[in-house]
Design a binder for these strands. Sequence first.
DNA 1: TGTAAACTTAGATGGGTATCAAAATATAGT
DNA 2: ACTATATTTTGATACCCATCTAAGTTTACA
Lengths: 193, 193
Amino acid sequence: MTSQNPTLLLNFFKALAHESRLRLLAFVSEREHSVQELAKRMALKEPTVSHHLALLREVGLVDLRLDGTTHWYALEPKTLSRLARALLAPGQLASLAGIEPQLSTDEKILRNYLTPEGRLKDFPASRKKRRVILVWLARQFEEGRDYSEAEVNALIERRHHDRETFRRELVGYKMLARKAGIYWRLPESEWLP
Amino acid sequence: MTSQNPTLLLNFFKALAHESRLRLLAFVSEREHSVQELAKRMALKEPTVSHHLALLREVGLVDLRLDGTTHWYALEPKTLSRLARALLAPGQLASLAGIEPQLSTDEKILRNYLTPEGRLKDFPASRKKRRVILVWLARQFEEGRDYSEAEVNALIERRHHDRETFRRELVGYKMLARKAGIYWRLPESEWLP
DNA sequence: TGTAAACTTAGATGGGTATCAAAATATAGT
DNA sequence: ACTATATTTTGATACCCATCTAAGTTTACA
């Protein structure tokens, strides 16, 4: 789930984005229900309920147990908690855009230094790790545009309170350039290793 | 978020249930973007992007900063992590159905003894707390229907491995009755305090 | 005050899908 | 085999919403 098919996450949200299906999940989270029961409690016809249950089953949110002619549906709680944990992983969204913000090796390093809200917890000591953080930070800036120092500070503060340190490091690694109080992002080919 | 307006959760999922909006979130999670930039990177017209951003803003997933005539949109990561945590809370779904499975005082007790997957971690010592757990467990059974012992065991094992203890307790509290190997749920008015 | 730039709002169109009734399938029991 | 029951599948209808163009709004600047 952590870094899989982009449409997987989308399918989850689609499955959850309807009132009838959310209410169905609520019922089957109490206990197993048959289609009949659910149709009665939801004031819908069986085919409609069956249709929704099929969608929920496709993404693994409900479980089906057959017993004679009656089908017992129940919540699959692990799926829901896996989804929740996936949402907490930073960088999960970025992979959806087809952007691939950095390599997956670096992503692991990065994950250790980011809170679920996407802020920096720390600044690592090793140069390799520091660079991963700074690459990520530098990519927050748009290429081909000027930034005032206040803008640079604001952008850094979205991720860490210590603007001075990170501003200085970004310039030191030649990720940002500075002239007369104006900053801009340099092409990645010029960034220092 | 823990136990609020049922439609709030639904609105979140609706906002997230479209590929364009997920990709928008991915872009603004990198850094601030203007509407123009986003329209260009997404190959959509500005009004379309503006429309989607408005929806995302309504549920607090993105933030807007005005600067002259250009509007800078950025991800609001706290909203996403709050949503994720809400999904991990057991009983969150139940409140959506208008079911209200138990009182909120009891819900707090229950929450302490449930894993995010909805399984029982423990069996409390105090009678009051034990009863809360058993009420919740008894409501997993359907009234007006017979259960074989195997079915009772299966239902209990969805929540805790120790079927014998809980089966015995449910009968002891007169929540379940037993005759000739057949079990059934008793009306709540007869359950012992 | 007038013009340009960036965005939002309004209105129109098309595609997706929720719901239902009717038909098809599967299982249990006689 | 036949019937009854529970569910799924099919096909039709209606509604919701994503996207576009065109028009309206706001801010900056001459």
